[in-house]
Design a protein around this nucleic acid. Structure first.
Lengths: 244, 244
DNA sequence: CATTTTTCATTTGTCTTACATTTTAATGTC
DNA sequence: GACATTAAAATGTAAGACAAATGAAAAATG
């Protein structure tokens, strides 16, 4: 075996880890100001560029924000769902594209998660969410839509479905799963018949949510999942390389 | 309104964004070497420290790794699920603790997601996963266990449940939701009767998975979710501050 | 010739110093 | 008192230097 896990990290990584721990543990609270870069470099006995590299690492994770000027400095950031979304999506997308995750696996995860949302959404969907879903369904039915645009609309529809569950934690978790699927979905060439089938399922889901029918919503989602799996199977039969 | 979204970012943030885009879009592929810091600083017409700050940002997201020496440099990293786990957990934990997410909301999300895994786990659970779950159940029954240790074992049990679904994408997404709950769960003081109830549900879940009974697994999870919600309600009645 | 050792060039890691820019607060003037 | 000016503090950026690591080429050795 190697050193197992002990390779002394860079100074900037060590410092970043220390500050990160302080934030996670609650020793540093939201909106609290960190010492200035000059003070930090003294405390840690390193140069200012090294401190700055550490701070940039934390900024990349939205853990801190910096402000210039006399009362400026680095402040502990209130990590918002809004901030976390894009990172989550980037990470999920790369995980899928870099790890040869099969279309089936990604699809299975996505629909499993969405079906978890369906019963909640049936009970809580707002008029706003329904309107968004209807609008996307309408867009999906327009002729001349490219496959990419169709997939983008598909993502928007499913995000509205997830958001309809009214649980920000779920929305955050699923944003990654749903958005990261798009590059994979884009590989599919949708025939007019494919689109009609998908739109029928989407309509069924929207109808089910509108009438607060969790059972039907689940059934419609199940049908959509099966149909998507079928499309993927056809795709692999014709272009076996596409899964890699 | 403000400038909406247009505040010119730091140079290091701009450069990091450009390189990140190149990675996400596939223009830079896994294990490809980036130009040296000196070359990058020329290309972007900035100083080397600025380039380094940009690279550290990317390193913080595990998008690149750096190596010293003659053939060293910055390389596009193959983002692994293993790398992404800790970040996902850190982010989820902070999201919950910094956004006053109620225990109910977090709990609802967690159980909704786990119930999505249950049917898959019923079909695929390995002997290994079952053994882990049984071991954690046994640990939970030992007297003298602190509440923290009980919660930690609870997390381990639920992670085994999620992993039993055999879908790495699901495991990744749920790791955040499950682990991030622990600080919230730790606020609960479990009586002996509470623990017995929870252990009974855990045993029921393990039994259901062992016999491949998805319906029963779902029912047991539902019962556990209800019981947890009840505990939380009692908690709030006694210590109303605990939800903030 | 084969093998080992040495040297060396390349690249990241870190430090030092300096200056530019931004922002607030204090100061001074009318 | 209101407004313009100045000063101070902090981050953002630049430039140059040296240390340390690393692999490859060159040299020495048997």
């Amino acid at each position: 075996m190697k050193n197992d896990k002990k390779k002394p990290a860079d100074l900037s990584a060590q410092i970043a880890a220390q500050i990160r721990d302080a934030i996670v543990s609650g020793a540093l609270i939201v909106d609290e100001r960190l010492p200035s870069e000059a003070e930090l470099s003294e405390q840690f006995s390193v140069s200012r560029p090294t401190v700055r590299e550490a701070l940039k690492r934390l900024a990349a994770q939205s853990l801190i924000r910096t402000q210039r000027g006399a009362t400026g400095g680095a402040f502990v950031n209130r990590l918002s769902f809004e901030d976390a979304y894009p990172q989550q999506i980037t990470t999920s997308t790369l995980l899928l594209s870099m790890n040869a995750v099969s279309f089936d696996t990604a699809c299975e995860a996505r629909y499993a998660l969405e079906r978890a949302c369906a019963p909640l959404a049936a009970g809580r969907r707002s008029a706003d969410h329904l309107a968004t879903m209807r609008a996307e369904i309408h867009r999906q039915g327009q002729p001349g839509l490219t496959d990419e645009a169709f997939c983008a609309s598909d993502v928007a529809f499913h995000r509205a479905l997830v958001d309809a569950a009214g649980n920000p934690v779920l929305s955050y978790q699923l944003a990654g799963a749903v958005e990261a699927m798009q590059p994979l979905m884009n590989m599919i060439t949708f025939t007019a018949r494919d689109r009609a089938q998908i739109i029928a399922r989407h309509t069924g889901i929207a109808d089910a949510l509108e009438e607060g029918n969790a059972v039907r919503a689940d059934a419609e989602l199940d049908a959509l999942a099966s149909y998507t799996a079928e499309l993927a199977k056809d795709l692999l039969a014709k272009r076996p390389k596409a899964s890699r």
